[in-house]
């Protein structure tokens, strides 16, 4: 049995302060609406993860924040500035790991490329750069075009972190990293967050790899946010309920929450519901269901539940 109802997740994070906001942001590529009225709010000091399927607009959004993509409608504020007018200034304050791991100056040695980055970012911390270089086992003598994907990622992460920017934009930061380097990266990011006041926006398909760092989640689909909220709120209010129900059970009628997903066979059902835990449990119990377990979803599971719901609504 399946039954789908609207599940509108919260999208307004209040009054800030925010490191990044967009209002009704729109960007088309020809007939394709890459961003379609997007209201992003990234609180200062947050570690905000953007999740969504391929083509949802994640990279376009990040490139818009960087001032690398010109938007057509709406407003953008990045650390108090509009990247459309003051792109160079904005970029100097951002540590950016692009989705693309190829280098613009591929003929340069890694050392030369890093010197180039240091000049561009006046707050470059040479000692920190050396420390990261050692931890990442970076060979400064190699030419950029000879680096593997994982080696390139490490150089890009070093360059993003070494100037201790107020904003980090990480587009698939763990892509190409092996297990050990990925683990080291999480440790480096934890220490970086403890040492430097930073806002982080991460776009990734591998949320589980960065989940312990994340405190805000934005779910993006077709150029819009389906929801953006603190991780704790998602954990507390989007829950999976397992219940045993009588034969031929017709359902609870009005639930004190919104059903995102309902599945199961015969006498055992599984619900994913957005709403107050006690109210939903009561609603299910009063309708004759015996609730056996209630558990939070990982960010990955939440994204799958929310995105598959919109997929089915659209079809």
């Amino acid at each position: 049995m399946t039954d789908i109802a609207m599940a509108a997740l919260p999208i307004d994070l209040g009054s800030g302060p925010f490191a990044v906001t967009t209002r009704a942001l729109a960007k088309r590529f020809g007939a394709v609406r890459a961003l379609d009225g997007l209201d992003l709010q990234v609180p200062e000091g947050a570690v905000y993860v953007l999740v969504g399927p391929n083509g949802a607009g994640k990279s376009t959004l990040i490139r818009t924040i960087m001032g690398l993509v010109r938007y057509q409608a709406g407003a953008v504020s990045v650390l108090g500035r509009d990247p459309a007018d003051r792109g160079a200034e904005v970029r100097a304050d951002i540590g950016y790991v692009p989705e693309d791991y190829r280098f613009g100056y591929a003929w340069m040695t890694v050392g030369r490329w890093l010197e180039h980055e240091a000049v561009y970012h006046p707050s470059w911390d040479a000692e920190y750069a050396r420390e990261l270089s050692t931890r990442y086992e970076i060979d400064r003598g190699r030419r950029c075009h000879t680096l593997s994907k994982g080696q390139s990622r490490r150089v890009q992460l070093l360059a993003a972190l070494a100037h201790r920017p107020p904003l980090l934009l990480l587009d698939e930061p763990t892509d190409g990293l092996d297990h050990v380097v990925r683990d080291e990266t999480l440790s480096i990011l934890s220490e970086h967050l403890a040492d430097s006041p930073t806002t982080v926006v991460i776009s990734t398909h591998r949320v589980y790899e960065v989940e312990p760092l994340v405190d805000h989640v934005g779910v993006l689909s077709e150029g819009r946010l389906l929801g953006q909220l603190p991780r704790d709120e998602l954990r507390g209010s989007l829950l999976r309920y397992w219940a045993d129900v009588p034969e031929g059970w017709s359902g609870p009628g009005e639930l004190g929450g919104r059903v995102v997903k309902r599945s199961g066979a015969a006498r055992a059902i599984e619900w994913t519901v957005w709403g107050d835990r006690d109210a939903v449990t009561r609603g299910l119990s009063e309708a004759g269901a015996a609730v056996r377990e209630v558990a939070p979803l990982s960010v990955d599971e939440a994204a799958v539940a929310l995105l598959s719901e919109t997929g089915r609504k659209a079809s």
């Binding site: 999480l186 440790s187 934890s190 220490e191 967050l193 403890a194 040492d195 312990p212 760092l213 994340v214």
Partner: peptide, 15 residues
Amino acid sequence: SVRELSSSLRVNPRT
């Protein structure tokens, strides 16, 4: 310290 523990657990220092 918050830094040591968050680094060894790979979690957000705020946690």
